[in-house]
Write a protein that binds this DNA or RNA. Structure first.
Lengths: 234, 234
DNA sequence: ACTCGTAAGTTTACGTCTGTTACGTTACGC
DNA sequence: GCGTAACGTAACAGACGTAAACTTACGAGT
């Protein structure tokens, strides 16, 4: 139960770290990404992700990171990809199994907002200006809901959440088809909804001390008019 | 036309700087703030504002800053205050002289968006999480449009743009009174509009590579439904 | 069973940038 | 002429990225 006898300058966790086995060098890579993620969540600042800080937390020496990442930017990119997958999963699992288009659209929006509220720093990192492009998105896989979605070969980068945004488009399109929304341009409406969702998340994260109205009421005041929802049971 | 003969490590501007006169020590303070602002605008990162970087740009020695600011956070606060004033002025000058409530509301929104588009880094700094509170806002100056606006003595910090937000509330209230908006809760609608404006600015700054729809069309798709505007000439 | 190549890290160290303290210097203006 | 406002110089300690060399120990091959 006693702390480690070693004296530590700042914060350090697991002092004891067993060296990985022969083929499991990749395990350290995952630990590095996890440590970087923790640093971002705790400090709220991606700038806190430094080679030495990550190394301290993982329990390794700083140069050991070079075996897996060329620099801190690569680490951040790995975190971003992980968060994007997690965010997409969060949205998808909230939507699955809901047939009613209106309820499903609202569920997607709620999931979007809840993720942003629970992981403000990760959301900011994910949606913020990316370090740069990386792998080209795997090309055409089928029908396209709107030609504007994939301008050119690499216009829609995965990093801006194209898959997640596709869920929104899907929901809005379904709502329009079912008469739950009066929109005549699902892509435009979905984009506008994205703006509203992004604004809600960012404003709550950016100005927490500002006396905003009740959360649910403000959400409705922003999202319902944008979605052009028809009266509930009309 | 030739560059300065001195060799410089990074970027440095005015090498020559004349010492201020006797009573004009305050001039340096303004120069420091201006340099910090430039650094933020050029790099997009408030972290680039370091005592030494500011000193280099101003053309002074780093310790000379201590006479005017205790640390970098104080400098950032000064920049934030300057930007807030500028932002408020930008909105106010765009609104002034417009009598028609609908046109005036739209003008305010356009000014909001244009400032955000032209000064993305400063907007982010201004609207982002503030370093902390500072001077208490000067107390009650007259009627209050909504009791929620000033929760307690210091609830509405000036740093979150209360004055600018007041303009929005004013416009929405006037629009509602004139029948240009169908809202029955101007404060809620103004807040929702703020969310939409913030979302538009932030999304364009955060994901510039994403193929967003035409700017004017997206603006309308977001703002008009939130504002609950009545048909133009009905 | 014993080697030994090599995966998986560590140690050490250099150079840069940072904040910050202590002290020295210039020159305006009464 | 001289006090003091308005700076500059020198130097420290800490954090950072990164290169080079060293160490440990797993596990395949004989």
């Amino acid at each position: 139960m006693s702390a480690s006898p070693r004296k530590v300058t700042t914060v350090s966790k697991s002092e004891a770290r067993a060296r990985n086995r022969r083929g499991e060098g990749t395990q350290l890579r995952a630990d590095i990404v996890a440590a970087a993620r923790e640093l971002i969540e705790e400090t709220g600042d991606p700038g806190a992700v430094t080679l030495r800080a990550v190394a301290r937390r993982v329990g390794i020496a700083a140069p050991s990171i070079y075996a897996h990442f060329a620099d801190t930017e690569q680490i951040l990119r790995a975190v971003i990809e992980e968060v994007f997958d997690e965010f997409l999963e969060h949205l998808a699992s909230a939507r699955v199994g809901i047939e009613d288009p209106r309820t499903r659209l609202m569920a997607t929006c709620e999931a979007y907002l809840s993720y942003g509220a629970e992981h403000p720093a990760l959301y900011t990192l994910m949606m913020g200006p990316n370090p740069s492009r990386h792998h080209t998105a795997d090309a055409a896989d089928g029908q396209d809901p709107d030609p504007r979605l994939r301008e050119d070969g690499e216009g829609v980068d995965r990093l801006v959440g194209a898959e997640s945004f596709a869920l929104l488009i899907d929901d809005v399109t379904a709502a329009a088809a079912a008469g739950a929304s009066r929109t005549d341009d699902p892509f435009m409406t979905a984009t506008a909804l994205w703006v509203g969702l992004h604004g809600l998340v960012r404003l709550r994260a950016d100005a927490p001390q500002f006396p905003l109205p009740d959360q649910a009421l403000l959400d409705r005041a922003v999202l319902e008019p944008i979605a052009q929802l028809t009266p509930p049971t009309a």
